[in-house]
Amino acid sequence: MNGTMQGEAMASAPRSHKMLSLRKRKRQEAIMGYSFLLPAGLLITLFLILPFGLAFVFGFTRFNLLRPDQIEFRGLENYLFLFTDPLFYRSLYNTLYFTAIVVPVQCGLALMLALLVNQKLRLTNLFRIAYFSPVITSMTVIAILWIYLYNPNDGLINSFLHALGIPKQPFLRSPDQAMNSIILMSVWQAAGYQMMIFLAGLQGIPKELYEAASMDGANRFQQLRYITIPSLYNVIVFVLTITTIQAVKLFTQPYIMTNGGPENTTRTLALFIYQQGFQFRNAGYASAISVVFFIIVVLLSFLLRKLLRDR
């Protein structure tokens, strides 16, 4: 089909060449291009750019979700309040803490898993499936299951610890352990996804490189250090970037497992925005937080890009 289409296009080419000047054709192509852009552009404008623009505007207002007819312009009030709100700083800290731990741990673990399941062993496929299956399970389901695993009295994990002679741990019910418990679960859930991407990257590395290296006497670790990692560099950049973006948006786990507690140690910015906007119906204040959140994410992405580019 592709062939005939090309043939037809070529057959008609001399005719159109005669009728249209080069400039006209260029303009037509541009129109064509824009008309292809239109559907996606419309959707993006409608569901991304417009809402964000509105959030920017609403950030300067007092807007109760139940009183959309009484939106009041309040200038910088929301922003001034935000910068004195201890919960904002706490949420920001929690979000950054989660990101700072999850990104390296999850990506490192994913790389290790990928190296493991890339070997030609029996049952490799079974392991691949095992590591990947949490990814395709709904986070909500997993979060609820882990609440039971983490149960401070008779949870499975505590039963194991008890059998090993370690005292029972409160996990999600302790300000010191709650966030780390969520991190552990999140890493377990999502590492399979990054593993798959790394695995695809690994399989794209030519075997000859390894053969040459081993002939030159490089051991396994040197092969990893000087062949695998450099060859995967672009994949690593990609994985780090998407993991960071996912991490700063952390919402489902604390929403389901702890609702931000105990003592606000698992309240993230996304959860904070949700509670202000939908539970407390302060759409104006929630919009202001979203704008600040957006700026923070943009700064973070720039930082990440700069760090990874400069190498």
């Binding site: 289409m5 090309q6 037809e8 296009a9 008609s12 159109s16 037509q28 064509m32 008309s35 292809f36 239109l38 559907p39 419309l42 959707l43």
Partner: peptide, 19 residues
């Protein structure tokens, strides 16, 4: 049907879907 018309048709279909 030449390629240009194919393109227009395709764009039209996409637009109609959205509208």
């Amino acid at each position: 049907m030449n390629m240009r018309w194919m393109k227009i048709l395709l764009a039209a279909i996409m637009a109609v879907t959205i509208i």
